[in-house]
Design a protein around this nucleic acid. Structure first.
Length: 979
RNA sequence: GCGAGGGUUGCCAAGCCUGGUCAAAGGCGAUGGACUCAAGAUCCAUUCCUUAGUGGUUCACCGGUUCAAAUCCGGUCCCUCGCACCA
């Protein structure tokens, strides 16, 4: 027995040792092998934006486990890795470093970045280079990934960019690219910016949303007072118009029309509509008391004063619908009660008082005037009340979802509000009475300090994912794919259908590939990462220098992916493909396959991709376009075969965020928990399809579990090293248990159920071995199962598995060993016997507990022979459909053995039938008495009771309490006496 | 707004698709015991209530289907996540 302290494993040494050997021997570099089945798996590569955290490693580890498993199953596995540098992911940190952002600098330093390195990182390209290296060396190799690192590439490698150019040429050729105007968020100084909660481009306003206002053009003389509304469906309820008497408005020329809006709005509009210019000023005061004629309703309404008209919101002018807008309701009432104010603004109080709200929407739970009702309910009576916001939201959301337009709404009467909204908008546009206007829901400030606005981009490039043919083909193909979890498989067709056009390029200063036919545009990050698994087949040749980026023209890719330019018209093939036919090798020139041919063969061999594994954030973004681009561009035989989605590791309080940092740096985590401990944690602590809360203690527990198994394994080796232990029934038992565990593990793995698979190997098997030892197993079976056990562990805990494999005396790697093709025949009968013993021990414990007898003598009564016969009979009848008790009893009474005990038998049949129906009838071992007699010593030792085995129903047995009668097949009766 | 997932016994987490074998796997924690001078580690047992063992009440809540429901259907409450040119 080793002393206790030595039972801590030096994981770091083991990890370093095996990683050194794997990568030193390049055992995971993959090349096609004629005739060998292949397996091509990737994980969605990370953006080079920051350090990775323990959550990312979950997905990556799944990928490696699958890759390792398939390799050992005999597949030729290709598992390449890369990094995603497109867009501004690396620009953002570079900018932060450049301006000396203290948080960012601290973040880099905390993760171990040296000052030398840090200085360079103000250059985005350096950031890409830096993180590429960190990912490969500090994370992926550090985790022992069995990847082919020769193929590593980023999306801004020159070769990759050629590939993307080709992709877009093909999309264009297929008619899937088009241009149209788009309203984007932008800073006037910096160009397009992203507005999102992570605030990578902006300094504030990350939660702002782009809102679409409908501009209602209300005729007033030769011009329009233009009101902005989010609720165009309420136009029938307009009773008056609001303007702010305390502010200035401007008159602008819009395509020949004169509009009145706030100056702020005019400025915003000028970025959205061409040729907008200011032609005059109008004090708000001057509008009050005039009239205007809004769209749809055929009547003039009065312009009234309202302080809540904010020149920064919408047009600064508002149309009033007091029936459904709490603000309007309160404002109107206040004014109606304020005669003095009316007079001071030159309004006729009587005329103002005459205005009445017009009910337009029937909303369940509300009367005809919801705005009025909610204000009364909430006790809102003044415009200054902050709860007006809440009231507005409530009315809007209830009305929108449940409301129906009433009879006053002309042709729209009877429609659901949600439907009426779109139709009314469309009708007003058609008649030229309305226009669209976009604005942010709250102020957004760019990193440069400028204001972020909504700006029209007149010629934005889109990919047409709404294309009928591509959508249908993709849906059809998705149905045939292996997609996990099943819920996603079911949802994917819906997502593909929902996917419409998507902008695919950006103006501005981003990293990425310029569109080959319009180089002002840079292909954006989602669109340039759809076919990339295919590029891993090429990157190797670029890295090695065998292929130069400038040689990768359209005809080159056409040749290797689309079979164009084969044999017959070689003239069209890339020049380079012809050139590299000879190479100086080993001192002489030899002919080697042309590089393009070699790559083409690689593509034919490795493609399609078998599994694309990525986080759930990809479900509605990356995966659909990944699939649709394959369908659009590549031949059917190259369409992907599988998708696996993983959920997250979360910290208390939310998702671990790469951009925000704060998570455990991987190198530190590895020291704390060990690589194999973490790998086992990922695989086993939960299904891949749920979020898991990171918990230190639990991860430590897994490290300990690995250690424990390691020592259990070594002890087992030591115990059998030079001995030839005798074979016993427990050896047959262990081998059978082990074999079925391995069987289950294999089928779990095939179903991507890593958790259940790991459970078999790291929990069930050690547990069975302990039982084996407890029952006196001497090691004969251990000798046989140990090698396969190490192999089974290898995908999950490869470092420790290699170590154990070596201790067994192997000179090769367990990682590249193969699982045996066939499982040995095993004896299932013994399993029933051991189940019986386990069950009995449970009953004994139960008896001990309820009687309180700790030490004493226990009599076990094995059921009479006739009971076994009756049980078998009932069981057979039950299986063949006879289930009613009286029928069963009749049938059983035909049996002479039962008839001899008629009364008892009838009762027994009833109970047996019940147990069988409930599935609770244990299958008894063949000879209970013999088994028990053989096991008395074991049972005594385990329970501390003296054990006597008797046959129920025999004369002269010791049975003072008549317990023997309760004996059932597979379940002996028990009687205990304290000493 | 659009869409998805979920609420299980102290905690984490299986089961739910394919109803019965489910008082409900496994892990963690807790309690007791073994081993030890002791501690840790390890091993064994217990961990809803009850009871000389085969009984009772549970799987967010309400209702329904069924001989039978954690599992199917309808409703309610609560939580989480994805998307809306960040990737």
């Amino acid at each position: 027995m080793p002393s206790d302290d030595s039972r801590a494993l030096d994981f770091a040494a083991i990890e370093a040792r095996w990683q050194g050997r794997w990568y030193g021997d390049r055992v995971f570099d993959s090349e096609p092998v004629e005739g060998a089945p292949k397996y091509f798996i990737i994980f969605a590569y990370p953006g080079t934006s920051g350090y990775l955290h323990v959550g990312h490693m979950r997905a990556y580890t799944y990928t490696d486990i699958m890759a390792r498993f398939m390799r050992m199953k005999g597949f030729n596995v290709l598992f390449p890795v890369g990094a995603h540098a497109t867009g501004n992911v690396s620009i953002t940190p570079a900018k932060k470093v450049e301006r000396g952002d203290t948080e960012t600098l601290a973040y880099f330093r905390a993760n171990g970045c040296t000052e030398d390195e840090l200085r360079k990182l103000s250059d985005p390209l350096e950031v890409v280079r830096f993180f590429s290296k960190v990912y490969v060396d500090d994370y992926w190799k550090r985790f022992g990934f069995s990847a082919d690192f020769r193929r590593f590439c980023t999306t801004i490698d020159p070769g990759y960019m050629r590939f993307i150019e080709w992709q877009f040429l093909k999309l264009k050729e297929r008619g899937l690219l088009f241009q149209k105007p788009y309203m984007g968020t932008a800073c006037l100084k910096c160009g397009p910016v992203a507005v999102d909660p992570s605030e990578t481009d902006i300094s504030s306003g990350g939660n702002a949303e782009k809102q679409e206002y409908t501009l209602l053009k209300c005729r007033s003389g030769d011009r329009y007072l233009v009101a902005a509304t989010l609720r165009p469906e309420t136009v029938y309820g307009q009773t008056n118009f609001w303007a702010n008497p305390g502010t200035e408005y401007v008159e602008i020329d819009v395509e020949g029309e004169k509009w009145v809006v706030s100056p702020e709005c005019a400025e915003k509009l000028s970025h959205q509509i061409d040729g907008v210019r200011i032609t005059g000023n109008i004090p708000g005061r001057a509008l009050i008391g005039t009239g205007c004629k809004p769209p749809v309703i055929d009547r003039e309404i009065l312009v009234l004063p309202a302080s809540f008209c904010d020149p920064n919101v919408g047009t600064g002018l508002v149309t009033s619908v007091p029936s459904d807008a709490p603000y309007d309701w309160i404002a109107l009432r206040e004014l109606q009660e304020d005669e003095a104010r009316c007079k001071s603004l030159g309004l006729d109080p009587a005329q103002v008082r005459a205005i009445e709200a017009i009910p337009i929407i029937r909303t369940p739970g509300f009367g005809p005037l919801p705005a009025k009702e909610i204000c009364e309910r909430m006790g809102i009576s003044k415009l200054g009340d902050p709860r007006l916001e809440e009231a507005t939201k409530e009315i809007y959301s209830t009305g929108f979802h449940t409301g129906v337009m009433n009879d006053l709404c002309g042709e729209f009467a009877g429609l659901n509000v949600s439907k009426a909204k779109d139709r009314m908008k469309a009708a007003m546009f058609d008649r030229g009475e309305a226009a669209l206007f976009y604005d942010m829901s709250e102020p957004v400030t760019c990193r440069c300090g400028g204001k972020v606005i909504v700006k029209k981009i007149p010629d934005q490039w889109f990919i047409d994912y709404g294309n009928r043919e591509i959508t249908d083909l993709s849906k059809e193909h998705a149905a045939s794919m292996r997609i996990m979890p099943p819920e996603y498989h079911a949802n994917l067709p819906g997502i593909l259908e929902w996917f419409q056009e998507r902008s695919c390029a950006r103006l501005g200063n981003w990293l990425g590939t310029p569109l080959p036919f319009d180089r002002r545009w840079i292909v954006e990050a989602i669109s340039d990462s759809t076919l990339y698994p295919a590029y891993y087949l090429i990157s190797k040749y670029v890295t090695s220098g065998e292929l130069r980026p400038e040689e990768m023209d359209e005809s080159f890719f056409d040749y290797i992916f689309l079979d164009k330019g084969t044999q017959a018209d070689r003239d069209g093939v890339s020049v380079r493909a012809e050139i590299v036919t000879r190479k100086y090798r080993k001192g002489k020139w030899e002919h080697i396959p042309k590089i393009a041919d070699r790559i083409r063969r690689d593509v034919e061999y490795w493609y399609p991709l078998d599994v694309n594994l990525g986080g759930k954030e990809h479900m509605t973004v990356h995966f659909p376009v990944f699939l649709m681009n394959h369908v659009a561009i590549l031949p059917v035989k190259m369409w992907p075969k599988g998708i696996l989605v993983n959920w997250y590791i979360v910290m208390k309080g939310g998702k671990i965020s790469k951009s925000k940092g704060g998570a455990e740096p991987i190198p530190d985590a590895v020291k704390l928990y060990s690589v194999d401990g973490m790998r086992l944690y990922y695989a086993h602590s939960a299904s891949p399809f749920v979020d898991v809360e990171w918990d230190d203690g639990i991860v430590r527990g897994y490290r300990q579990r690995v250690e424990r198994i390691y020592w259990q394994y070594l002890d087992a080796i030591a115990a059998i090293r030079d001995a030839s232990p005798p074979e016993s029934r427990m050896d047959r038992w262990l081998e059978a248990e082990f074999t079925s565990s391995i069987d289950r593990m294999q089928s779990f793995m095939d179903a991507f159920d890593l958790r259940a698979a790991a459970g078999e190997i790291f929990f069930t098997i050690p547990d069975r071995i302990r039982w084996y030892e407890r029952r006196g197993g001497q090691g004969a079976a251990m000798k046989r199962i140990l090698p396969l056990w190490a192999q089974a562990m290898a995908p999950f805990v490869p470092h420790v598995a290699e170590e154990l494999w070596e201790r067994l005396g192997h000179k090769d790697f367990v990682s590249t060993s193969l699982y045996p093709a066939e499982a040995p025949e095993t004896d299932r009968e013994v399993a029933a016997e051991e189940d019986y013993i386990v069950r009995l021990m449970g009953d004994l414990a139960q008896v001990r507990k309820v009687t309180g007898i700790e030490k004493g003598k226990v009599w076990l009564y094995v059921a009479e022979e006739w009971k076994c016969e009756v049980m078998a009979k009932v069981s057979g009848l039950h299986a063949s459909g006879t289930r009613d008790t009286s029928g069963l009893i009749k049938a059983v009474m035909q049996m002479p053995s039962a008839k001899a005990h008629a009364k008892e038998a009838a009762a027994f049949v009833q109970k047996a039938a019940k147990d069988i129906a409930a599935g609770q009838a244990p299958s008894p071992p063949k000879d209970e008495h013999a088994l028990l007699s053989d096991s008395t010593q074991f049972l005594s030792r385990e329970t501390g009771f003296e054990i006597v085995v008797q046959k129920a129903g025999e004369k002269g047995i010791h049975d003072p309490k008549g317990k023997a009668r309760a004996a059932a097949p597979g379940r002996p009766a028990i009687y205990a006496e304290a000493i």
